[in-house]
Design a protein around this nucleic acid. Sequence first.
DNA 1: CGCTGTTATGTTAGCGCTAACATCCTTTTT
DNA 2: AAAAAGGATGTTAGCGCTAACATAACAGCG
Lengths: 341, 341
Amino acid sequence: MSNASSSRRRRGSARTTLTQVAEAAGVSAITVSRALNTPERVNAETRRHILATVERLGYVPNLVAGSLASASSRFIAVIVPSLANAVFIEVIQGLQETFEARGYQILLGNTDYDLDREAQLVRTFLGWSCSALVTAGLRHSEACHNLLNGWDKPIMEMMELGEALDLNVGLDHAAAGHCMARHLLQRGHRQIVYVGGRMAKDYRAGLRYAGHREELAAAGLEAPLIDLERLGSLEAGADALDQVLETHPRADAIHFANDDLATGALLHAQRLGLGVPKDIAIAGFNGLPLGQHVTPRLTTIRSPRHRMGRLAADRLLTRLDGGSVSVRCNVGFSLLVGDST
Amino acid sequence: MSNASSSRRRRGSARTTLTQVAEAAGVSAITVSRALNTPERVNAETRRHILATVERLGYVPNLVAGSLASASSRFIAVIVPSLANAVFIEVIQGLQETFEARGYQILLGNTDYDLDREAQLVRTFLGWSCSALVTAGLRHSEACHNLLNGWDKPIMEMMELGEALDLNVGLDHAAAGHCMARHLLQRGHRQIVYVGGRMAKDYRAGLRYAGHREELAAAGLEAPLIDLERLGSLEAGADALDQVLETHPRADAIHFANDDLATGALLHAQRLGLGVPKDIAIAGFNGLPLGQHVTPRLTTIRSPRHRMGRLAADRLLTRLDGGSVSVRCNVGFSLLVGDST
DNA sequence: CGCTGTTATGTTAGCGCTAACATCCTTTTT
DNA sequence: AAAAAGGATGTTAGCGCTAACATAACAGCG
């Protein structure tokens, strides 16, 4: 039950070891090891006998020892900037499903959008002899680069596309920004404000804004920007709407960096009695279910988050199995036209 | 002859080891180990010199080897039933913040509400010599019980209260069910339908239903139950509303097992032009931000999820530091009266 | 002056497992 | 029939680190 037992054994735990199983089964340690890890290399009868002994003694393999001896753990390091964002959760789920089915364990790290923390996490994860590393984004600190460059295992950079260290699965954020801006222009909006949150850190929102701005520039329009101090949340979105109404009273559309902000603004507009899109159009990014359940339905861009996770995991597994995969994979996105624009 | 590195490297990686750092610094391996792990036990000057050498050689400690030698990793196993539910994400965040600040790494497992998968995960995590284990819920498979009973490290069971293996932080779900039912009765509702999702698996929803039913029984009322095949989602909530309207046309209130379902129903009622709470009252459970941003605001019960995570982590850390903590901790809940009832 | 206590460092012996090589059969090939 | 190939199991030697004990040097003390 609790950690009460304070025996004075010199080292080691009371747990059954592989050697004890071997003795009990009347075989050598390596045979037990093989029966558990590469069963096809052991005679069927011997195997059955060993597994029965394992069961009888309640043996739980010491994975730490195994990893040390084989110089590789079945860990996959996964580093994301935030857990508060449903987007990363879905990517993680995609990764997890695929990896767990193949016996890999995910080691999750959260950088809170801080590149130094990322380097720190990478350091720790390398120390665990992970089989591969997955991280969100292509931007890293110099320390992080140094650590990763000297590493000999697969690295997957996700979410965006570009010059990667190794493998890369993601989508083109600038193109997504272009796409939504074009849509808003087509709908006749001309005073379009872009609203993001902590964009110095969430630089992918910045990439989308760059696309948005180019599109507006091509139409001879300004692209005012509001950069909130908070990341996405319904509350921040509601506040942002107030701010836009005050600072850009002639705005006819708001292009939000994510669906949380957009939906928060949309629900707040409802409370204020503002017509959406009649008085002001609202657009988001991500394609979260929430946006599709409010009235009017949110116009947004859907990214295949879950699929991105699965794809990334599949490619890493292929690589780990010795296969070769193409370096870059564009998962694309789709414009989801709702009634809010 | 030092044929050590001349022949093909038999084992091991190209990475710098602690012994190499020790040689380069002109001290013994254990001194380097101490300089890194218990710096106060090493002379300040020696320490500085060693750390400089570590830096110069780009040494990254092999945590696997350290864990094997010390028979304990700085891993905390965390097992939750789902990542799709914001509730668990927030609990995890609370745990993570607290543990990471103290140098522990979370090892996350997802059971998908399957007790056999839980046992499987526990097995794996024990194999990693975790320092402690956190799991959601008090119900486990027999295999899981056996594994945990023979374990000598702290165990924390979260979310609900009751007979625990070791430590327990949570809230009283039956009381929460009572509380909301009482509120609905006070508001004059009499035909109250309870709607949950996969309640055989999400048995805490069942505990709340039991409280709900008792409260209604005390008022001489029936407590019809609808158990959906899906867990919480906005879409499932919308469908559930349709189902209630069809099968219980005289219902005047719906008590949902979670906010996702409740909000989905609420938004759907809006689309259908139904008045909430005039035509039908809607109540949820969790107190997610979403419910507080829709109109009418959702009546729900708020659980201190983030705090639950922090509290659990704090208690485990106290335990790990050799301190003693009380076994049970009730974090409570609060009724959040909105405009939907 | 020896005694004890303290601080700083070193020596030894594993932790529990698996890679690599070795051995001993049985089967297949030539 | 001898040689080669393959299958099953064993022996040896670590993986890289740290617990436990050992040593040394020095301060404080009666």
